[in-house]
Design a protein around this nucleic acid. Structure first.
Lengths: 171, 171
DNA sequence: TCCATGATGTCAGTTTCTGACATCAAACGT
DNA sequence: ACGTTTGATGTCAGAAACTGACATCATGGA
């Protein structure tokens, strides 16, 4: 992260990253599938948290209520990482390859969410749409969270964004 | 496209693509910024179509009504390209790098849409949320369109998806 | 007819990423 | 305690993606 903040992502070679970590380039590739991936630390806790939250929602919950519950759980995941998220966001937005990677990560999060909803009996395309809407809310709130001078509560931002989306679609 | 359908995207080298086109590898890179880009032909008409549609919406139109109008215009853009879209979709979904590229393209479409809405006086985060919702609808409808055995009308699929999203958010 | 311009070719080099094999240390069974 | 197994790391060679610098060539205008 230090190397990237100082020189920018493209200017840093994998050999340099490895050297800074006291490792070999080859070893770097044993830990990360490619150079970009080093900025997307293991997301499996996020996925399991998401999947659990979908499953934990009461049977009576509508698709969007389920999504709202998932967003709450997701916000908790980020609570201790505000400073890290800020730096990471700065590096990522400054580089096209990284924005690409970020976009797929969010897309596969949406896929996982849609799969969870289908598991609950939500039919397509309702499941995908609810999931995409949820991720849209997440994206917007997350940007606000990392760019705001005064760090607000991520969960609050998500709730507000979800409300805003609701009224936009049914004025 | 022939090369990709037969051998898969990864197995085809840029040298092979260039040779098939009767060109040099270096010349390939003068036409496309990278190997993936060859599957994302010049999207500027799509962007200008989108921007025009946003601007053309009546002042009285709400953000989501504007988005709906944009989706109609976008559908028209794809009307003659069903077969091409099918092949392209098959190649892209089969490869991670290409799914990445597809994801950013859609994200930047969302950005353009949000910018257009802001131009109309829609505030943030409403503009981004409406734009993301619109792109979500597009994604879902587009998948249905290219995977359905019997090619339905893309505009119809989008309208249906938008309705579905509406009811999901306000049951 | 000459020349300016834009597109293409040639070539060398950097960087990312991968496969194959070697090495080393900690953990394990006896 | 000792040989072995296993997992992590190192070494090396090489393919493929990309880039910069310069040469060539065709086309159209002065």
């Amino acid at each position: 992260m230090d190397l990237f903040t100082e020189h920018g992502f493209e200017q840093v070679t994998v050999a340099e990253i490895a050297a800074r970590a006291g490792l070999t380039e080859r070893t770097f590739y044993r830990h990360f599938s490619d150079k970009r991936e080093v900025l997307f630390p293991d997301a499996s806790p996020l996925y399991t948290g998401l999947t659990d939250a979908v499953a934990a929602a009461p049977d009576s919950a509508s698709p969007m209520e389920t999504v709202a519950a998932v967003l709450e759980a997701t916000a908790a995941f980020f609570i201790d990482r505000h400073e890290f998220s800020r730096r990471r966001y700065a590096v990522i937005t400054a580089n096209a390859e990284l924005r690409e990677r970020e976009a797929v990560k969010l897309a596969s999060l949406a896929d996982a969410l849609a799969a969870g909803l289908r598991e609950r009996g939500v039919a397509e395309p309702a499941a995908s749409l609810a999931a995409e809407a949820g991720i849209a809310v997440f994206k917007v709130a997350h940007v606000q969270w990392v760019t705001a001078d005064d760090p607000e509560d991520l969960a609050d931002l998500m709730r507000a964004a979800l409300d805003e989306l609701r009224t936009a679609l049914n004025p």
